[in-house]
Amino acid sequence: MSGQLTITQLEKKANEVRQDIIRMLEAAGSGHSAGPLGLADIVTALYFNIMNIDPAKPDWAERDMFFLSNGHTVPVQYAVMAERGYFDVSELTTLRKFGSRLQGHPERTKLPGLENTSGPLGSGLSQAAGYAYTLQYIDDVKHRWVYVVTGDGELNEGNIWEAAMFAGKYKLSQLIVYIDRNNIQIDGSTDDVMPLEDLRGKWESFGWHVQEIDGHNVDSVIDAASMARAISNKPSIIIAHTIPGKGVDFMEYDYKWHGVPPNKEQAKEALKKLRTLDGKITSGDIE
């Protein structure tokens, strides 16, 4: 039940997702900008190409699983889910508002299609590992996959490395993790706050298969998942190098956009940038 868009269609969809994110955050008046924009290509590729899912049946027993570990980036998940048909796009602007199913951080019990509740960092990977363990060792189900997105700042958490040991020990080969390697966290660059390198070497030494990709190249995002599924005796890490705030030039690379939304003028400017692919096409071509 994959969406199976072409690469060009996926790129266009990711751009629409970025516009959704800007509109959602502006309407909410709070929330995180940089991470969701940076993850748009990966999460779009997951929901529209990589994962076997059915938006009409969010609890379908044969589905692939998606665990968002860094819950603060959930605007990107909501936007992609709406674009994919889990719920109407018009609901997106209820983000963070009273009575909304789109809580500031994801709550499984509020919205069908969410697989976990996250926000406090470092626990989503363990939940996904528990699910993957169950598939591999208890239920003996080999055709389902468990996908995870974590942040890089999140890797400061001890809980992550407990999960890394656990998944490595049990060779959880149905567990596939994208690390959003955007090099920023709230207090500054990841190098300044708490250096993570040698990141590849760390995961390899814990028994994981590691790939490194350009997280904005949807072709690479899809190929990496395919390679990860082919690795039958290890869990997989995909270090996805991304640009925080990707697609909106005044947000890109700037850690100050980690935890704030655009105001009205900034949102207008951001949407213009996204619609025109940063001036490369005129608005007449796309409206």
Binding site: S126, Q127, T134, F166
Partner: peptide
């Protein structure tokens, strides 16, 4: 086959359990 050794890692103990509960 239904017992899982987690090691001395109590944060992982309960979060892995949460994921197993999600799996039924």
């Amino acid at each position: 086959n239904r017992f899982v050794e987690i090691g001395v890692a109590e944060q992982n103990l309960v979060t892995v359990a949460s994921g197993m509960a999600r799996a039924g």
